[in-house]
Amino acid sequence: MSSFVKNIIRFALFIAVQVFVLHQVPPLHKFIVPYLYFLYIIWLPFNTSRGALMFIAFIFGMTLDYFLKFPGLHAAPCVLIAYVRPFIVNMLIRQEGADQNYASPSATSMGWAPYATLVVILTILHNGYLVFLEWMQFGSFFFFLGKVAATTGVSLLLIMITELLFFRKEKFRTNTA
């Protein structure tokens, strides 16, 4: 299956899971909102250009927003993590040229520790910015801190489960066939 088709299917699946599964779970506490959907942006291939990455993230975020009837709230954090992702990937990549030898960021292509760092940084950025936008309209600083901490914890847990359940084997590609 080509990477293009695969990513289109993933797009639909991530939105569907976020809207019809995670957002249907009765809320445990006001700080806990399970966000998983932005994992799609982390999983996009290495060779996506930065402009395309941001554009896809914008469309992806807006799609979720139109389902939840709140345009812009999730699109802005998605664009932010899409903009930041290449910087962090370049910083964390283990050996020279791993971003050319492998298709997309994962535990096998980057190594467990660098990949976990990437996921943690992007999750904190995404949730921090998202809650910041909410905090600007209402809420106290305590709301901001508590919600960022709680949503990040839940997001990381969900991402870990997803990574374990859907383990992606990345093929090593060389041009010296």
């Binding site: 941001m54 914008f58 927003d65 345009p71 664009v79 903009y83």
Partner: peptide
């Protein structure tokens, strides 16, 4: 700075949508 400018444009779009909708 095309990437950064594109980033800013998308952010402005998103925030414009958000605050206008509010």
């Amino acid at each position: 700075f095309s990437n950064f400018l594109f980033f800013l444009v998308l952010q402005i779009f998103a925030l414009y949508f958000l605050f206008r909708y509010n």
